[in-house]
Amino acid sequence: MTQLAILAAIGGAGAGWQIYGEQFGLRPPLEMLGLRQASTQGGARGGVQGGPVAVIVQPVRVGQVVERVESVGTVRAREAVTITTKVAGIVEAIRFTEGERVDAGATLVQLDAAALRAELDQARAMLDDSRSQLVRGRQLQAGATIAAQRLETLEAVARQAEGRVRQAEARLEELRVIAPFAGRVGLRQVSPGALIQPGTVITTLDDTVRVRVEFSVPEVYLARIRVGSGVTAHSSAYEGRRFQGTVAVIDTRIDPATRSVRVISEFDNADEALRPGLFLTVELVLEQRDRALLVAEEAIDPVGDHAYVYVVRDGRARRQEVRLGLRLPGEVEIRDGLNAGEPVVVRGVQRLRNDIPVRVTETLTRPTS
């Protein structure tokens, strides 16, 4: 009788909840109906009830990574000078064409030298006469006598004549404006017949077969910059073209205002595409690792400041903490925690927990992106 009473009470309670629930839109607790809620947490997390979790893996691959820092730079000619004259004079002839390449020592401008040529001719004539008198004095026969003082005087006159010739030649040379090095001349600023003064700008001369690119790098990278490091540059003026150079000079001082160090790189410029003053975007190679370990980006399971991956070992997913390096398109460098060739889960990571059985359905051999 007692059991029948209990069942009746339960049945009555269920009926009461059904009537009450229909009136107010409520459902009775499952416990009152003698039922229990099925737990699905185990199946969702590990899939143990349904067998091993199906996953796709990819071996840790070995590849090259290059760590760079980006900056902006300006092209400078390796050698550059403004051509001027040291003396006053009238432009007699212009011996260059704007924009052409000239050799070192080539005459660019000739100033009027008529007066100096006449002076040089006179000095040379005096030199010839003094040398002739000196030779005759030295060739006198033994019986002829000549005062030693007279011979010394002739020698002094000859030396003075030589000095006047050299002086006239030097002044004449100053009237010829030459190229101090091989390069390309710019626009000319004078015309034939113009009277120019010392310091008057005639043109410019730039050696652009090899150019320099100056840029600044934040001081935090100072210890990683090396002379000889690779530099890549590109400009909006040359879409799709990239120029390759190397670090030539690192400044000895850090700019206290910008907290950066100035770096000078050199680029071969045989076609002279890089013009002085051109603005460039520069990438400086800080470090290159030829045998870096790489995994797919989706294999990383970040937790706070830590990063984990799941490695398949003996049919189970082992959670492994790793130290990340550079991020590449679709891949991440692993600096510590994995070995080359280890199978890492790249699909199905969200359904895994440590040491859960897994079933590999596919092994990828190429990057997933």
Rank of each mutant, 00 (worst) to 15 (best):
F24T: 04
R188N: 04
D301H: 09
Q149D: 10
T84C: 05
A317E: 03
A194L: 07
P29D: 07
Y20M: 10
D206G: 01
E22Q: 14
E219S: 09
D268C: 05
Q37P: 12
G337E: 01
L205Q: 00
E266I: 00
T368M: 14
E152L: 07
V177C: 12
L111F: 04
R27G: 15
L111D: 03
D121K: 14
Q167G: 14
L284Q: 11
A257P: 08
G230Y: 00
L328I: 10
E239P: 11
Q320G: 06
A104L: 05
S216Q: 04
V285F: 05
F243Q: 08
Q350K: 14
F279H: 10
V211S: 06
R316T: 08
A15C: 08
I19P: 02
Q23L: 14
R318E: 10
R275T: 12
R184G: 10
R176C: 04
E239Q: 11
P59W: 12
L278D: 05
V60D: 08
P29S: 04
P367I: 04
L26A: 14
I90Y: 11
A8N: 13
V322L: 03
E169W: 14
I334E: 02
L108W: 03
R323Q: 12
E92K: 15
G34D: 03
L140G: 01
L33V: 03
Q244V: 13
H306V: 13
R150S: 13
D129T: 13
A148R: 15
L175N: 11
F215E: 01
R150N: 10
P256S: 04
L35M: 02
E22S: 09
V102I: 09
R188S: 06
R159S: 11
V209K: 14
A158L: 05
G21P: 05
G315L: 08
H234S: 08
A8F: 13
L284I: 05
A179L: 09
S39Y: 07
I264Q: 13
Q18D: 10
R366I: 08
I146K: 09
A170R: 12
P367Y: 00
L108R: 02
V309E: 04
E31I: 14
V81T: 11
D129Y: 14
A113C: 13
D336F: 06
L35W: 01
T200K: 11
R166N: 15
R289E: 05
L140V: 02
V345N: 03
A237E: 13
A340G: 02
R136H: 01
L278E: 04
F96S: 00
T84L: 11
Q320C: 10
E100I: 07
I90Q: 15
L33E: 10
D305E: 15
I56V: 13
